[in-house]
């Protein structure tokens, strides 16, 4: 196993097909076991950056390495097993008819035998305290329940890194509290894109601030949150 940073992004720039440049010269290292917050105003490039972590988007220039491997066509299978990407809208993440099918989707595409898939699904659902939901239809679940199952869909792939986009958005206080408790219990390396700075303070020791497609700060969370003028300059509020 290589000992370098698990996520290694070097001078990454990215433009969408319509010419909009979403990322400008972004460099970021994340080591195994780190829990990192990714904050910044809407349109700062947070989601675009997350989509580069497992090759959904490819750099216009620059390199993304995961676990030492450059993200490219022939490493996609391994990289996607290592990086569990949880999208903001659980209705996008949960695309199967039943909860079981959704959680089993990743393991099935990893090529695991049926018995192993079933064991993974059971373990992942138990981890997010939704064991009895396997036969349910996703549409009938609450937002909080959907968010938990969305996390289970990637836990079943046993990833090294969890990349979560706005995990607490749209949750009522009780569901938010439950989700934070759940995230606390997970041992994986984490990168969480969020506007919820109170969660960041509680959960994530390191904060990366993005604005206008660039990283404008990468410091211990306590320092970032203490700098009121800086937060205001980048449209953030505790």
């Amino acid at each position: 196993m290589d000992t370098g940073p698990f996520v290694q992004i070097e001078h990454l720039s990215f433009s969408y097909g319509n010419g909009h440049q979403a990322l400008r010269d972004v460099s970021l290292h994340i080591h195994r076991g780190e829990k990192v917050a990714l904050v910044g105003p809407n349109g700062a490039g947070k989601s675009t950056l997350m989509l580069h972590l497992n090759g959904i988007l490819r750099p216009t220039t620059g390199v993304v390495r995961i676990g030492g491997l450059p993200v490219e066509e022939k490493t996609l299978g391994r990289v996607r097993a290592w990086v569990g990407l949880v999208f903001q809208d659980p209705d996008d993440q949960l695309f199967s008819p039943t909860v079981f099918d959704d959680v089993a989707f990743g393991p099935i595409y990893q090529g695991l035998p049926e018995r192993e898939v079933r064991a993974r699904v059971a373990a992942a659902l138990a981890h997010v305290h939704m064991a009895e939901y396997a036969p349910r239809v996703s549409h009938h679940l609450s937002v909080g329940e959907k968010k938990r199952i969305a996390i289970a869909t990637v836990l079943a792939m046993e990833p090294e890194l969890l990349a979560l986009d706005e995990p607490t958005a749209g949750l009522d206080p009780r569901a938010r509290r439950g989700l934070i408790t759940l995230l606390c219990s997970l041992p994986q390396t984490m990168l969480i894109s969020t506007h919820d700075l109170r969660m960041v303070a509680e959960l994530l020791p390191r904060t990366v601030v993005m604005d206008g497609g660039r990283i404008v700060a990468d410091r211990p969370t306590a320092e970032v949150l203490a700098d009121a003028a800086f937060l205001e300059a980048h449209g953030l509020e505790l």
């Binding site: 989509l51 497992n54 959904i56 299978g77 996607r80 097993a81 990086v83 990407l85 999208f87 809208d89 996008d92 993440q93 695309f95 089993a104 989707f105 990743g106 099935i108 595409y109 990893q110 049926e114 898939v117 869909t153 990637v154 792939m157």
Partner: peptide, 23 residues
């Protein structure tokens, strides 16, 4: 737009265009 996002979510979990299911 949603179709694109769902495709991304499927691809992120290893979907490669082939439909797989249990026997």
């Amino acid at each position: 737009d949603r179709g694109e996002r769902i495709y991304a979510a499927m691809a992120a979990r290893g979907y490669d265009g082939e439909i797989r299911a249990f026997p």
